[in-house]
Design a protein around this nucleic acid. Structure first.
Lengths: 347, 347
DNA sequence: GGCGGTAATTGGATCGATCTAAACACGAAT
DNA sequence: ATTCGTGTTTAGATCGATCCAATTACCGCC
């Protein structure tokens, strides 16, 4: 006979060990006021003595309750998502829920696999930041019709809660800030053309320019992968012909920090002879040289909000769908400077 | 009668829907070769038709198998841990496991709560990067005697697998590199005195100095919280008296990047008039100004290794405990420069 | 002593899957 | 016709907890 290496202790063992019934032990575990104080003490002592561990999966099965929430993001190595995930986990832990993690690496196919896998664990709901190119119907198919989903950060077709940063307003504020400083030749730098958040930010940029009577120069809309490295590499694209822009609104902080590096590599001095603004306010933004002016969104707090919302919906699936636009705030630091003398004179 | 809002479809519904037994459907779900191809097709069609979702928790309960692994870290906003977590999740997802996330925020008390919560979900094992001041016995108590634990990155008393970076060798390599460049006055900057990883790194630093016949100056061992911000604030501590150090081995990259900022704020030029070396090789290290010389440890790959190991142990709990020292590698970049003329002459 | 009422406890069914051993179908061999 | 074997299917028990209805214990009161 093989050794049962992981003999588990069940509620039955506890009951037998202290001479009460399974049901009573269960009541103790759930803190019911029905059990007598002496009985409770006896049972609790036995639980500690034998080292019993509660099996929440079994409990959930019978009681049809939930104790986990799925969280699907692109990649935790993006500090914006890492912060967001930390916020989700914090809020869930406080109410005794556990976070089921899944990452897609921006692949729609992996996303389907990850969602299917999470759904099988019967979470109370899933918080999903969809990979680019996700299909809402496909998502609905794989998670089933009745699992609450909260879509974060990117558009996804379907009847779901949707929390998105106010990308348009954020980019508009950033652009207006640069205009107020005296800039007229302003680029929009970085991001993928077909990502919904990038489209919205570009639209905010366009609106601010239009309101100021400035015509947008299409060649100053530069597409890059939203990473520091790519952004650094493409910095030259801003200066291929005269006149060059004197400032840039960047798709996000990673791109902005990359652009700073790229500028330095070309002998420019971001914050003195070129102004830039980021988006997200990741922790590094305040610490770069120069500190980055950016749009703050407090991803950790957003994570908490998302967690709270998905639990609300799990409790009551009939509440109305909410499309929440998360407010943003302009954080002015030193990367956004007025144009230089020469640039100021010749717009 | 209340509306059953989340009426779930079970294996029974599938069976009834296509006129076979529960057991047959179960066999189909698990890809058993026993079922006839026609039956399989019929069942699979029905599964798709009604949108059935497998309940893995119920299956695990009966079959005594596992499908998740717990991962407990301090805080995902530390990019080193975020990368590590991404690696763990990647590797687990590939074999159909799910990651249960928990974060401690460096609080021993929260760690106990998080571990208890995770253990109740019956994971195959837990990968734990212990909070500072963790008590091995307390951990053992809360997770039970038979749950595999893999300790990562920090010491923890107990009979567990233990993966730790070769902190001593790493710090020794870093220090030797600075010595080879001609530095003689080398500080050890940042980290908490009582953290085990910091102790080990300081020891490597000390050994390298001793081997070169240099006496360590205790006042150049500067303690800070291991964050960028704190490290930036304390930069002045290096220069309180003459002669000041010309180089520093930093506890980790976050500290090193913070010190760079602090130096710049004091009018110094890291990489030309002060040399520094970090530890971890987080993604930002290569992109800072100047790019940071550091000790690479590939946290994502370590995450994969940890995931693989914990699954191995879950399959066979009798395998011998392994204390694995993870090799490190010196990445030479521009932050480590030779001493300036003046400093070189007067050691 | 019997009765009602509250407090505390309990046995058996149940959640949604798997496991086991047995049953069934059907053609070939005896 | 019976036996056998192979391939396929299934009923009923089971995993570890909860739920429900029923039972027991005990006290006060007429």
């Amino acid at each position: 006979m093989t050794v049962r290496s992981r003999q588990k202790l069940t509620l039955n063992d506890v009951a037998r060990g202290c001479g009460v019934s399974r049901a009573t032990v269960s009541l103790v575990l759930r803190g019911s006021p029905l059990v007598h104080a002496d009985t409770r003490a006896k049972v609790e002592a036995e639980i500690r003595r034998i080292g019993y561990i509660y099996n929440r999966a079994a409990a959930n099965l019978r009681s049809q309750t939930y104790s986990s929430v799925g969280l699907v993001v692109n990649d935790l190595s993006n500090p914006f998502f890492a912060e967001f995930a930390a916020g989700v986990d914090e809020a869930l832990a406080e109410v005794g829920y556990v976070t089921l993690l899944g990452s897609t690496g921006e692949s729609v196919q992996r996303q389907q696999a990850v969602l299917a896998s999470l759904a099988e664990h019967a979470p109370a709901g899933i918080i999903l930041s969809p990979a680019e190119g996700s299909d809402g119907a496909a998502v609905a198919r794989v998670v089933g019709a009745h699992l609450p989903i909260l879509v974060f950060n990117r558009e996804l077709e379907g009847e779901w809660d949707y929390f998105v940063m106010d990308n348009l307003t954020g980019a508009r504020l950033a652009t207006e800030h640069l205009i107020a400083l005296g800039h007229r030749r302003i680029a929009f730098y970085g991001g993928h053309r077909d990502s919904s958040s990038c489209r919205e930010r570009r639209e905010g940029y366009r609106q601010a320019l239009a309101n100021a009577g400035i015509e947008a120069e299409p060649r100053w809309c530069i597409e890059t992968a939203p990473t520091r490295l790519e952004a650094a590499r493409q910095a030259g694209a801003l200066f291929v012909r005269d006149p060059a822009p004197t400032a840039a609104v960047c798709y996000n902080d990673a791109v902005a920090l990359g652009l700073q590096l790229g500028l330095v590599a070309r002998g420019r001095h971001p914050g003195s002879d070129f102004a830039l603004v980021g988006f997200d306010d990741i922790p590094e933004a305040a610490l770069s040289t120069p500190p980055l002016t950016t749009i703050a969104t407090a991803p950790r707090a957003r994570g908490r909000q998302a967690a709270e919302r998905i639990l609300e919906r799990a409790r009551d699936p009939s509440i109305a769908i909410e499309k929440r636009s998360i407010p943003v705030q302009l954080m002015i630091r030193e990367s956004s400077c007025p144009p230089t003398e020469a640039d100021g004179k010749a717009p």
